[in-house]
């Protein structure tokens, strides 16, 4: 077994009396393309936000390549190489598309190369014709791509994508799946999704969250036939 690129130990987050994350032990091997699924409120987004420093954990630890990052600032985690696309498009709405990508490229590659890299990314996302439009005017799906593009431009080691295909047409979803597989060639990827067709397209291994804990972790096909997972999704209770 190789050393994990990301690991959490007894990770816990309490909001008042609610345990949003209740002792999660999570391991991610380098190069994986992992999907996180689970019903609403299972703690998937909270888990992502803790890994990227947006929410401090109540207890437990998060290790990135063996280094404890559970108390690190957002920008420090970003520099280490963990990039995230948040659930709601998290971009610079009032600023032109090209400028959005420029700001992302500039940090990792310097001002001299940033322009070229931003242009190349617009080509790759097929959004070049919109270069000077404020991102706030673009469609939901386009903004998701812009955000994914910004994350990739940082050359991260781990890419966390929170619902990357939400609000997309079938065609757009397929393109997103292709993009994610491409990203996975150079980075470890974790995707939170609800769309099972989409997960079937991309996932090798699936982790199921339920009420702040990991309920199951296996290949997509096995997870789909797991009775506990079905119960959780369909709201059935054991033995009923």
């Amino acid at each position: 077994m190789t050393a994990p690129i990301l690991e959490t130990r007894a990770l816990e987050k309490r909001f008042g009396g609610v345990r949003a994350i209740a002792g999660v032990d999570f391991r991610l091997e380098p190069g994986e393309l992992r999907c996180l699924i689970g019903p609403n409120g299972a703690g998937k987004s909270t888990f992502f936000k803790m890994v990227t420093g947006q929410i401090p954990p109540t207890s437990g630890s998060i290790l990135f390549q063996g280094t404890d990052i559970s108390r690190a600032e957002k920008h420090e985690i970003g520099r280490l190489g963990i990039g995230i696309k948040n659930q709601v498009p998290d971009v610079f709405n009032g600023v032109a598309l090209r400028e959005n990508l420029w700001l992302a490229a500039r940090f990792a590659h310097g001002a001299a190369k940033a322009g070229t890299l931003a242009d190349a990314m617009m080509e790759r996302l097929e959004l070049s014709s919109l270069a000077n439009r404020p991102v706030g005017e673009l469609s939901h799906g386009q903004r998701q791509w812009v955000e994914i593009g910004m994350v990739i431009l940082r050359d991260p080691k781990i890419v966390l994508l929170d619902e990357p295909s939400a609000g997309m047409s079938i065609d757009e979803t397929n393109r997103t799946a292709a993009l994610i597989r491409e990203v996975n060639r150079t980075a470890t990827v974790v995707v939170v999704e609800h769309d099972m067709q989409f997960i079937r397209q991309i996932a090798t291994k699936v982790t199921v969250f339920h009420q702040g804990s990991i309920l199951a972790e296996d290949s997509f096909d096995r997870i789909m036939t797991d009775q506990r997972v079905r119960d959780v999704y369909l709201g059935r209770h054991g033995g009923a």
């Binding site: 990227t52 600032e73 957002k74 971009v91």
Partner: peptide, 24 residues
């Protein structure tokens, strides 16, 4: 300049700037 462009980015979305690795 780079400084000014990052500053405008912070005005637009401070969290995103930080997630990109800038110390806002």
């Amino acid at each position: 300049s780079s400084f000014g462009r990052v500053l405008v980015g912070i005005r637009e979305n401070e969290r995103r700037v930080e997630l990109l690795g800038y110390d806002a």
